[in-house]
């Protein structure tokens, strides 16, 4: 297990270098002048441009530029944006918000998604099964911005159960409604995945064995069938958590959340190359770490998978 983890951590090095290089190359290779519009209506003075080009090493060749960037990165220096703020401070401001939002969304996915799946599987062909199948299908087919605006309008404005937008502190209460919107699609997939797995496992031989041991139906399902059905669901939820940590541009936009998705979107639009590369680097790292955690967790719930 220890050796497996170390090997996986080492594998991350080429992945991080590869992805950051591609992002770096793409951001700075984009056509257009990063200094257009930076100085109000007038073109920027030559002295400013010269200073900036020197500061961001824009006159070096691409590999040299990237090398210098990477060297700074290794020292924990994510660089500065053109506006003079450090990239790290921008990430440090946005990431906790995104993390909170993702965490609430994942909890909603787990609790509601799995419960709905179990309920549907135990009532196959019945009312709950059909209700869950139809409602998840609707959620899957509606684009997230429609769900977002609908939820904001209904629960935020008309019923006023939740605040319609999120303030600068992004409290947990404010984040519940956006988290529901963010979780809705994956929740539908989790419910369907759980339903399918459990319905299949209820017919498995070991479930029949559990029944023949004289266990109650509750114990047969809760302990023997559900546990096995969770294995693929955990993989899905883990991967989804990694994706949610990458920010959600649409949901963040609708609810005015200052998370990582919004930061990335704004940075791309204003050609803040250093911020884009910095954010993506952090996201790649987070995604890889979450995946490693999921794989380790996978081994813990399915003993047939052992990492040598």
């Amino acid at each position: 297990m220890g050796r497996y983890t170390i090997r996986r951590l080492l594998q991350m090095i080429p992945v991080v270098i590869g992805t950051t290089f591609i992002i770096y190359a793409m951001v700075w290779a984009l056509p257009g002048d990063p200094f257009v519009g930076k100085c109000g209506d007038r073109p920027c003075p030559a002295s400013y441009i010269a200073e900036m080009r020197a500061k961001f090493n824009l006159d070096d060749s691409l590999p040299v530029q990237y090398g210098k960037y990477l060297w700074n990165l290794l020292q924990g220096n994510f660089g500065e944006s053109f506006s003079g703020r450090t990239v790290w401070s921008e990430i440090a401001q946005a990431f906790p918000v995104t993390f909170r939002l993702a965490l609430i969304a994942i909890i909603i996915e787990i609790v509601i998604g799995i419960s709905a799946g179990v309920l549907a599987a135990l009532n196959r062909g019945g009312f709950w099964d059909n209700l869950i199948l139809v409602s998840t299908l609707i959620v899957i087919s509606i684009p997230v911005f429609v769900i977002g605006f609908l939820a904001q309008f209904t629960f935020g404005i008309k019923l006023a159960w939740f605040p319609p937008t999120v303030g600068p502190n992004a409290t947990i209460y404010e984040l519940i409604l956006p988290a529901f919107v963010l979780a809705s699609l994956s929740l539908a997939y989790v419910a369907r995945l759980m339903r399918g797995n459990l319905a299949e496992n209820l017919r498995a031989d070991y479930v029949r064995t559990a029944t023949s041991k004289g266990l109650s139906r509750r114990r047969v399902i809760g302990r023997h069938a559900v546990r096995n059905s969770l294995i693929p669901v955990v993989t899905f939820i883990g991967a989804d958590f990694g994706a949610l940590l990458g920010g959600a541009i649409v949901t963040e936009g609708i609810f005015n959340i200052r998370g990582i998705g919004g930061l990335l979107y704004l940075s791309i639009r204003t050609r803040e190359g250093a911020t884009v590369v910095g954010v993506v680097t952090v996201l790649v790292l987070v995604f890889l770490l979450v995946n490693l955690l999921v794989d380790i967790l996978y081994g813990a719930i399915d003993p047939r998978i052992r990492y040598e």
């Binding site: 498995a204 031989d205 070991y206 029944t211 004289g214 109650s216 546990r227 294995i231 719930i301 003993p303």
Partner: peptide, 25 residues
């Protein structure tokens, strides 16, 4: 019947690999 099942009338199945739960010792 649940009290009799397993305790007084017990059963052995054909394919022990699929009849035992893979995720428990």
């Amino acid at each position: 019947r649940q009290k009799i099942r397993g305790a007084e009338i017990a059963m052995i199945f054909q394919d022990s690999l699929s009849a035992l739960n893979p995720v428990f010792t």
